[in-house]
Design a protein around this nucleic acid. Structure first.
Lengths: 357, 357
DNA sequence: GTGAAAGCGCTAACAC
DNA sequence: GTGTTAGCGCTTTCAC
């Protein structure tokens, strides 16, 4: 029937439907559907005939039709903060974290025949609830990937739970029992980094923290303090300066730390951008790195590798985290890893901390 | 009717359909559809009643249903090279270009009520055709955003044209008449940069080119040579070295250019990563930048701003380009700019070329 | 093992 | 101006 109606159409515009396949294979559409969805009770001969028809017609099921009729939409949505995005737009910089995250999600989605939808969410807006609800209703994604800071937004979690849509929270730090999570141990990583510096003989170590409002930022600072205490080293309060994760704030922090008469021999910044700012401040003051000052960061952004000297930092496996998170949302969860365990990280040692004291 | 069937359901799981809205407003579903799609012939009173019903039911049309029934899917697909993506995964780096591109696309999509789907395409694979065809058939996107190197792949263009799906090619350099394009004038930008160096008094200028296989790379080199010629300066062939756009290749190129007895006073690298490599090579040789050597790049990646010294470079408005490209695909094309014209760029002057000769 | 028929929630002709 | 009626291309009961 479908074929009949289409006699006048061009080959280009013509797209086979399940009816065409069924007709060509001499079976019912239900059988085609069963073969395609690996349903039970399919005889080998039927399977073969259907596959041949699919092949010769180069048939692909329509996503919309499947989503409308069935329970699955074959869509995974990644919720990305709109404010953050606009800020990046303004500053003309891509977001390395999001970019790496997306790779992981994309690769897993594709393996499973799913598609990745990226959605902007207004974390700071009053209409957040309405827009999230809207997204879930109109798109009906099979799962949602929550990126910071949405991972910790109770409003978003509420709606997702109400709606019954599975979701994974990346880097979430609060309400640990809600939804699924994939995260790393920021505190322990900061301990490792601090011990790396102590191992190099450093005793006066400066710390440039991130904003106190970020849970990850607090965890890193706690790790630093814990490591210092464990080694019997006192933390001079004057050696802890708060930045806001930007290069400029790192430069200012570095400048003030290095201007002190009894300046530190090493500075641990809570992220790479700030660490690069410290490097810049040191250069401006004529202090050679690493000979005169060891500097380390956190994140392992591309710039960390390219700076002069290259930066020792903590490498977060963002892509792998996103891949694991996506797998958690996909049917037939392999459960290759325990979602309640933090993912691993690595201390990447580069030139910026290579000199001892 | 729909309401009736749902008496047993919980409020949470219950989702209003167009029938519910029509029933509540006391109109037909067609009227609801007309109001929602801004169709003609809607009386103000009808409009008001429908809007009120939509509001009170918090109704959102189902994307799948609309796509299945109508001509539009409200989906824009961005085709991203899979190989490139996997390479980035391996190296653990995000892709700044893609990230910025996506922002632009996302913001425009959201304004128009569209959704952005990111799809991996195997540029280098034999199954490329099949997978692209698959994507178009199952997703039926209303438009496709082609990113390099897919922008220049004739196989992809063929399929898109056959399928009748509108597409925009970002940064395309070949087959200029096919599809829509958004691009910049790489050659002129390279001329500008070269003249910037000449204006600083530099006469012996080294050039680190990208791979000759990239059209953009060739255009940049041509621009450099044209500018030199225009100013009556001879280009010493020994001062042109080919790299492969990586940091390491830039470092090697810088090392060999600077080892020569009559070394250049300035080096223009075809992209920022290589320029940073040159900076690194200069530092290793004890040559101060910018005092002893001016260095400039191309792209304005985040690292360019963070390096020591910060890098003079060409800023490509990737986000704006993507936004413009997306607008071209959306209904009601505003045509705010002429797609046959290249987009603007900016020479960003930073410390790395601040000293004259 | 396989098929017939009834929707999923919309849009689109075509009446009125 | 507004409503009726078919589908869009699938999945899903439920028979056989």
């Amino acid at each position: 029937m479908a074929l009949e109606l289409r006699l006048g159409e061009t080959a280009a515009a013509m797209t086979a439907t399940i009816y065409d396949v069924a007709a060509l294979a001499g079976v019912s559409i239900k059988s085609v559907s069963r073969v395609l969805n690996r349903g039970p009770n399919v005889s080998p001969s039927l399977e073969a005939r259907v596959r041949a028809a699919v092949e010769s017609l180069d048939y692909r099921p329509s996503l919309s039709a499947r989503a409308l009729a069935g329970a699955s939409s074959y869509l995974i949505a990644a919720f990305v903060d709109a404010e953050l995005t606009l800020e990046h737009w303004r500053s003309g910089r891509g977001n390395d974290y999001l970019s790496r995250l997306e790779y992981g999600a994309l690769v897993e989605c594709r393996k499973a025949g799913f598609h990745l939808l990226v959605e902007l969410v207004d974390y700071g807006s009053a209409t957040l609830e309405a827009s999230v609800r809207s997204l879930l209703r109109s798109l009906r994604p099979d799962g949602v990937l929550l990126t910071p800071p949405n991972s910790d937004d109770p409003r978003v979690l509420d709606i997702l739970e109400q709606h019954g849509t599975p979701f994974v929270r990346l880097g979430a730090e609060t309400d640990l029992q809600r939804g699924m999570r994939v995260f790393m141990d920021d505190r322990q990583a900061a301990i490792d980094m601090t011990e790396h510096l102590i191992g190099r003989g450093h005793r006066r170590i400066g710390f440039v923290s991130g904003p106190g409002s970020y849970a990850a930022s607090r965890a890193r600072r706690e790790g630093f303090q814990a490591a210092m205490a464990n080694h019997g080293l006192e933390v001079d309060p004057a050696l802890i300066v708060e930045g806001d994760f930007t290069f400029d704030s790192g430069r200012r922090a570095g400048g003030s730390l290095l201007a002190a008469p009894d300046r530190p021999t090493a500075i641990f910044a809570s992220n790479d951008d700030m660490a690069l700012g410290v490097l810049n401040a040191a250069a401006a003051l004529g202090i050679p790195t690493p000979a005169g000052l060891a500097v380390c960061g956190f994140d392992d952004t591309p710039s960390a590798m390219l700076s002069t000297p290259p930066l020792t930092t903590i490498r977060q496996p963002v892509t792998e985290m996103a891949a694991a998170a996506t797998r958690l949302l996909l049917p037939g969860v392999s459960g290759s890893r325990d979602p309640s365990e933090p993912v691993g990280y690595a201390l990447v040692e580069r030139l910026s901390t290579s000199a001892g004291i």
